[in-house]
Design a protein around this nucleic acid. Structure first.
Length: 534
DNA sequence: AAACGAGGCGCC
DNA sequence: AAAGGGCGCCTCGTTT
């Protein structure tokens, strides 16, 4: 039986969810009480607020139901995306009271000082336990009333499990060798300089750019660079790298090099290290449900965008290994499973789906098969995707039809859903289906069905891996980026965890789609350094 | 001085 | 080869 949990300053209150108030008890320590019962699903308002103190006290929770995340999913399902989703708001809607706005999330730094759950703003006289019970009961009814209750229930469970994993990942952080990072920065940029002073390599490149133009140019200013090219007789539409690469001018090579290095300095330089690396770990804050498609976001440090050139700084700690598992070609595989296109499912039985498609329709030209398939999922119509798209439409009509139908619904301002029922946001009030807006919306909904389904597959995968890890001493999740999981574990359990990630991927596929021919092969490597994976 | 949009680029 | 989906976050340059 699920148990409702209402944290308070000292501990909290617990109530088995039976429809009555019988059996409520107060505990001095939630961590102790929750640790005594490793099977129960704990129902609470907000995992991000309730779980950190419990985890900090040493208790890992196996399962929960996050009322706020579930409320957001249910509101979205009804086309009410973005309405306040806190328990207080859900309760106010149930009672016909004014709905309080969601509180903005506390800054990460702020949260470290303000330890403990954020206050739930309920009207005076409302008992938080009764509110939680009422909202939970209502949510169960609404889940049961969806078109596919079993699927939506799985979505809610996965979203809630993800919230637990996110708190654990935020607490754990990613092993980070600051010395290795600093050495890489010095090799690329030169010795560290004080704030506002460009490092040696950037200064050199800046001088070369100025020499090539015959005047001083600020490479950080697109307007200045554009003006310099114009004065030199080159009309360039922007200063994007791929545009500049086509321009024949001596300033281009140092400019491209400058952009690359300046980016590393700004995004992941010495200042970044001081701000975001603590105790040998890089600590982004993971935000489940932070993206409309159900992907996670992170707050702080750009946690989902670690540049590949710096991944050498991610090193397993002594006696341990990093198991890096990546679900390759996830989106086209999910397209096959979603659409049940037989020909594409046959291709998805291969380890390399793009190669399988290429060998059947593109005379083995894998690159063209990939361009065509990505173009189909992203809504590209012209360019190099046009011809491969026509070939795919001929050969995989069922899969392509699913995408084109999603696009058509979007172009008309309609809603689409993922496989488990996550629903895209509605168009704004003032939206009108004029050409460009309709096409843009069509590309969004076309991509949404695939990206959101990929996100939920990955969430289920993560939840299964997390559950499996509970029985491996010393194993911890240290990174999750859309379709990649990194676990740090004692060297001797590397093989078992590799196997766990593979089995979990298979199970995730079966949980979402039942028995299909679509396989979800992983690239898994047990390494001592992140840079050595993949 | 602070807020904001645009341009740009890292990741998936 | 070409520029289509989702983000976070930097700098620049303008507006408030």
């Amino acid at each position: 039986m699920p148990v409702l949990v209402v944290p308070d300053a000292e501990g909290g209150r617990l109530l088995p969810f039976s429809g009555s108030t019988v059996g409520e008890r107060s505990v001095d320590s939630l961590a102790t009480a929750l640790a005594e019962d490793p099977v129960t699903r704990w129902v609470w308002s907000d995992t991000a607020a309730a779980y950190p103190p419990v985890l900090a006290a040493g208790t890992r929770v196996a399962r929960c139901h996050d009322l706020a995340l579930t409320e957001a999913l249910l509101l979205g399902y009804d086309g009410r995306w973005g309405e306040p989703a806190s328990v207080a708001a859900a309760w106010a809607r149930l009672r016909g009271l004014p709905v309080p706005a969601d509180q903005p999330p506390a800054e990460a730094d702020e949260r470290l000082t303000l330890f403990g759950p954020a206050p739930v703003r309920l009207p005076a006289g409302a008992d938080p336990m009764q509110v939680a019970a009422a909202v939970y009961a209502d949510q169960l009814d609404r889940i049961a009333a969806t078109e596919q209750p079993a699927r939506f229930g799985l979505l809610v469970a996965a979203e809630s499990a993800g919230a637990l994993a996110a708190v654990e990942l935020t607490a754990a952080g990613l092993p980070w060798r600051s010395d290795v990072h600093a050495a890489a920065l010095e090799r690329l940029l030169g010795p560290r300089t004080s704030a506002g002073v460009p490092p040696q390599r950037l200064a050199e490149l800046s001088a070369r750019i100025g020499a090539a133009f015959g005047r001083r140019v600020n490479p950080d200013s697109p307007a200045d660079v554009l003006g310099a090219f114009s004065a030199a007789g080159h009309t360039v539409e922007s200063t994007r790298s791929w545009v500049l690469r086509k321009v024949d001018h001596p300033a281009v090579p140092p400019l491209l090099e400058y952009k690359k290095l300046a980016r590393i300095l700004a995004a992941n330089g010495w200042v970044w290290q001081e701000r975001w690396v603590r105790g040998g770990r890089f600590r982004p804050e993971y935000v489940p449900g932070g993206v409309v498609s159900g992907r996670w976001a992170t707050r702080g440090g750009g946690g989902l965008q670690l540049p590949k050139v710096l991944r050498g700084a991610v090193c397993a700690e002594p006696g341990r290994v990093l198991v890096v598992a990546d679900a390759g070609q996830l989106e086209p595989r999910l397209l096959a499973a979603l659409s049940r296109d037989e020909a594409m499912t046959a291709a998805a039985e291969a380890d390399d789906l793009y190669a399988a498609i290429a060998s059947r329709s593109f005379a083995g030209d894998r690159a063209r098969a990939k361009i065509g398939l990505l173009g189909a999922m992203y809504g590209q119509v012209g360019g190099g995707a046009a011809t491969p798209l026509a070939v795919l439409r001929e050969r995989y009509p069922v899969a392509l039809h699913l995408l084109e139908e999603a696009a058509r619904i979007g172009e008309r301002g309609g809603l689409v859903r993922s496989h488990l029922g996550r629903t895209c946001p509605p168009v704004p009030e003032d939206w009108a289906p004029w050409d460009a807006a309709a096409r843009s919306r069509g590309r969004f909904t076309r991509n949404f069905v695939v990206q959101a389904t990929a996100a939920e597959w990955a969430l289920v995968w993560l939840a299964l891996v997390r559950t499996g890890l509970a029985t491996v001493d010393g194993a911890e999740l240290v990174s999750f980026v859309h379709d990649e999981i990194v676990v740090q574990a004692p060297v001797e359990s590397g093989a078992a965890i590799t196997e766990l990630t593979r089995q979990s991927a298979d199970r995730a596929g079966r949980l979402l789609f039942g028995a299909t021919g679509v396989r979800f092969p992983l690239d898994v490597a047990a390494v001592s350094c992140y840079a050595d994976a993949g």
